[in-house]
């Protein structure tokens, strides 16, 4: 079981929990503003962009090539950007806070 917090651009914050699937699916299921997950998680739409806390970034890991190629051309990219459809919900991310980019 992982509990995580999403901080949205309208300054809302939401604690959600889950134990399977992707972080995008968890956000969409809980109606987190700014995470649309249009493509269903195949890394084609970039509507699931989040920032990982710098302190947690190593634990979450960097993006694979396909994902980083998408992010590279996103105007809101930072070095802590990820597309959260590519992050699994697991104990690994328990307690983390993610800032929604859009």
């Amino acid at each position: 079981m992982a509990k995580v917090i999403f901080v949205t651009q309208n300054n809302g914050s939401m604690e959600v929990e889950g134990d399977s699937g992707s972080l995008m699916e968890l956000a969409v299921a809980n109606g987190v503003a700014g995470i649309d997950g249009d493509c269903g998680g195949v890394c084609s739409c970039a509507t699931c962009h989040i920032y990982v806390d710098p302190a947690d970034f190593d634990k979450v890991g960097a993006a694979q090539e396909v994902e980083s190629d998408m992010l590279e051309l996103d105007d809101k990219v930072t070095e802590y950007s990820r597309l959260c459809c590519q992050i699994d919900v697991s104990d690994q991310i328990d307690g983390m806070t993610f800032v929604v980019a859009n």
Binding site: D36, D38, C39, V42, S44, C45, Q64, V66, E67, L73
Partner: peptide
Amino acid sequence: DRKINPHVSFGFSHHNCLGATHAR
């Protein structure tokens, strides 16, 4: 079973398809 599929059928960047949600 293609799990990663960065296709551009709905375009890319600023002008990506506004009707994509409806079409999907």
